[in-house]
Computed example of a mutant assay.
Amino acid sequence: MIKDQFNLIHISEVMNELDVSRSTIDRWRKTKQLPSMKIGKEIYFDKNEVIRWYRQFGQVRQAAPILNANQTLTIGYTTVSTHMWSPLIIKEFGLLEEELRRINPKNRIEVKWHKAKDGMELVKGMIAGTIHLATFGDYALSVSHTISRLLPDFRPILLAAGGKSAEGNGFGMVVPMSLNLKNISELATLPIATTFRTNAEYRLKKMLESYHMTELNIIHRSIEESMESLHQGKLSASIMWEPFLSLAHHQRVGKSIFDKELGLGFMAGVVADERWALAHEDLVVAYLKAHLLANRLMREQPNKAAKFFSLETGFPEEVIHRSISQIRWDAALYQSDLTRLSYFDSTRQADIAYNIAYLRIAAQELRLPTLPVHPIAGAWQQDHYY
């Protein structure tokens, strides 16, 4: 036979040998130049070329166990900030399950959703291997990168952006409507509430340090407690973020000041362990396709999204609508996004690890404009969203 004469192997044999799906093989042929040839309607590979290619591109796949049919894919999420709400849309509308059925209709992979109290709980789950993909904020992402320097087996990698806000949006210092402060130095006389070991506390301290104010009265409270204290007139200032900023404005319990001074806006990100992602390309791309579709829904059908979020979180629809309108729902990574992440790393030892390849494939399969290989330079494009 021709295949034996020329040392060829059929595509089905490659799938079995490498334990991957047909869609993964097709993707490798397109994006990673896996050599192949078509004889009639059948696709074959040169055995030696497959071995050579696999040693160069695919050997890392063996570093993590393969997630087979009838196993569980665990997605981590948190509802503490509007910027991290895209998984709620994916979950509610079954966007991930739909993609999984499309790539492998015969094998059933159960999707488990893990709701965490905050981003650091998700980071711990990823370290333990109990969470495969997660969406959390820029501070937790930076911390996970720092932890990876101490734990070589943990390699968090940024796959896509979640919700993001420009400088002056996403975070604010909320004070009573009657309180008028003209200068940051006037904060020296006030107790300021913030949540412990979070984006809010870090941003507050960085702002105060930049103004050489290190002796302030900072108290730790949950954001819900701060909202209640502001409402009762028992609190002078609190650091807040969306949707609580929009809620404070809606209820007129306070106004936000010094927004720009708190610095750099805010961004959530979709994260996985690098070796797990390499071992499960199909699942990563399926999730990112669902993520892109969720972003599109929030941009194009904000009323539908607001109604669902209101039922899920208990916030009034008008508050949710205002909140999601303040956020850019764009999965593309910009160089400015990565610069924002380095803001939390005082050592500047290394850049945050990222991989755009999976998002590029997801965008291509959804017939979106081709993403560049590297993070996009310059300002966010106002007519181009992913």
Rank of each mutant, 00 (worst) to 15 (best):
V284Q: 04
R299M: 03
T82A: 11
Y211H: 14
D153I: 14
A277K: 03
V143A: 07
Q381A: 09
T78P: 00
K117G: 09
L262N: 02
I75S: 03
E274N: 09
A363W: 02
A377E: 07
P156G: 08
A353T: 10
R149V: 12
R348S: 13
A363F: 05
A63K: 12
S178T: 14
L179G: 03
G269P: 00
G76Y: 03
H374E: 14
L8M: 01
M298D: 00
L187R: 06
G263V: 12
M120S: 07
A272Q: 03
L34C: 01
M15P: 02
F6P: 05
H250D: 08
D337C: 08
T78D: 00
F171S: 09
A332G: 11
F266T: 11
I127A: 06
T82K: 00
Q301L: 12
M298V: 15
E365H: 08
M207N: 05
E167G: 14
I184Q: 01
H249R: 14
S238K: 03
L158N: 05
A377L: 09
A353G: 05
L100D: 01
K205P: 02
D4A: 13
P105L: 07
I2F: 10
G172E: 02
K205R: 13
A277Y: 02
E224W: 06
S222I: 06
V271K: 01
Q59M: 13
G172V: 11
G263N: 08
K164A: 09
F6V: 12
Q71S: 12
S323Y: 00
L187N: 01
A237W: 05
R348I: 12
I184F: 02
I51S: 07
I43Q: 03
S81Q: 12
P87Q: 01
K206C: 12
N107P: 03
V253K: 04
N7R: 14
S144L: 07
L338K: 00
K304A: 11
A294D: 01
K41E: 15
L141W: 05
Q381K: 13
R27I: 10
W241I: 15
I11V: 14
R221E: 15
K289T: 07
E97F: 07
H212R: 10
G254I: 11
A63C: 10
H249L: 15
W329K: 00
A331W: 04
S323C: 07
L96V: 06
N70F: 10
K41F: 14
L262D: 02
D383G: 06
L18W: 08
I89L: 08
L368A: 02
L187C: 07
F45V: 04
D282H: 07
